[in-house]
Design a protein around this nucleic acid. Sequence first.
DNA 1: GCCGTTTTCGGCCCGACTGTTTTCAGTCG
Length: 576
Amino acid sequence: MTERSVAEVLKRLGFGYDFLGEHPMRARAFSNAARTLKKLPDVATAFAAGELDALPGIGPGVLDVVARVVRGEAVPALDDVEARIPPGLFDIAQLKGLGPKKVRTLHDDLGVSTVAELEYAVNENRLLALSGFGPKTQEGVAAALAALRARAGRYRLDQGLAAAEREAERLRALPFVHRVAVAGDVRRGLEIVEDVVLVVHLDPDGEPALAAALGGARGEADGLYHVVYAAELPVRVVTCPWEDLFGVVLLRATGSPGHVAALEARAADAGAIFGPVGLYRGSERVPCPDEGDVYAALGLHPTAPERREEEVPLVALGQSRPRLLRRRDLRGALHNHTTASDGIHGLGVMRDAAKALGLGWLGISEHSQSAAYAGGLDAAALGRQIEEIARLNAAAPDGCALLTGVESDILRDGELDYPAAVLAQLDVVVASVHTRFRQTPDEMTVRMVNAASQPYADVIGHPTGRLLLGRAASPYDVEALLDACAASGCAVELNANPQRLDLDARHLAMAKERGVKVSIAADAHSAPALAHLDFGVTVARRAGLLPEDVLNCLELAELRAWLAARKARARGHAGA
DNA sequence: GCCGTTTTCGGCCCGACTGTTTTCAGTCG
């Protein structure tokens, strides 16, 4: 039912060849290609545009696989590999700490071919006897299995949003459907969702036909029918039989329960009833074709979907309310990568893509020298990029301005990865942790506070290091980091990659309280990935951020002034 | 399989970490 993505197919080929031990270098080639294409949000579009062959590590063999996957055809090489490897082993290979070699041992020496069998083997301590395995390995596998169970049925926002849009399109194509809207946790922009909720206005007798068209199960709750079916995610379609009820149904299907309860209480205070099938004053139903009609009838400003949480108060008409950040407030974005480190597009392509998104400036921050695996730049390579950026800026003075920078690894004690003289040449320094995630919380707190106090650190990148449904946030004292940022003037990043969304909304609100500026970073490793900024705006809105809280909203000259002030402070620091 | 101031063969990101070993393989970032 769910077709595999191009990157997944390539990854399976890579693992398969590695597991079979026949073509180790071919395996690496496919694994590398999978990693490269993962940096593109939409491989099919890039393939259709003929943009893939230019990418490093993408040759005729990989392109052939991509073409087949995009066209929905079978991939003979994958069929061959999958015919020779029990399917469960591909799942086991996803577990942290288990690579092709260890999976091979598990299979050959223990007869394990499924996740369930692996769990059973772990419970019986049977991994201990395997060569290359020991108590720590078994503990690690047990933890990875627990993490796998914990994320079952949970999806990232980008996955939920993509599925919601696909399913909404599908519903709109049905002749008896008049209007479709995305609701639920996806609409409120939760970083992790469990299902997709859609609201449809359809013919009064259209609901059985809807269930038939979707192949779903019918149900009924609070006087409304819904249809439940499985797509990439579980989908629940709430049906709205009357046009002037749509606002009510959409509002209630969007939630949160706490927000809906607050609206119900507000209605009750005004002697009205806000229920599942309408807003009633006495026996009269108030027509509410849109959500705004509900809020207006209750004497309220509409609450943005991202702010509809229990702890966010309703705002009465006549009360002033701050205007939340919008996408079009963004003038630029920091922290992006090019082919100079581990990005897949060059400076010119990145700049043009940023301009096409309406951005007037774009910060380039490649990996630093310690990050050899990501093609980190030494001081000389940084110097060459600074010159190239100067040339590009001079050649197109009216285009999107490129800012020089680096994403410096934060070393074990919080120091940056270059001497001050090198950092001083750069427009902006983003400081991020990429190694030694397993320091104790106290050590990590000291490390992060030190990093935020480094004179040349301008932004702390993806501050907790979490990977959603992958790696937990580093369990250190984020408030101590924010205090240090408030003291030093260092900004914090909201990494907008949907796998990170780091900091989260709760911590961003704490940053705002302290007056710490937020940098919404695409952390783009390809030109199309700049679009991830949209997710950043969603999270920023959930945190209640305003344009004035966000560095991206500065005009180029204002940003340069902010950076220059930090540079002057750093020089003073060095002179002291 | 991909790639090329190493260019049609012969290499292939590389250092750190970890847990396992008894000198290092496997995995990760």
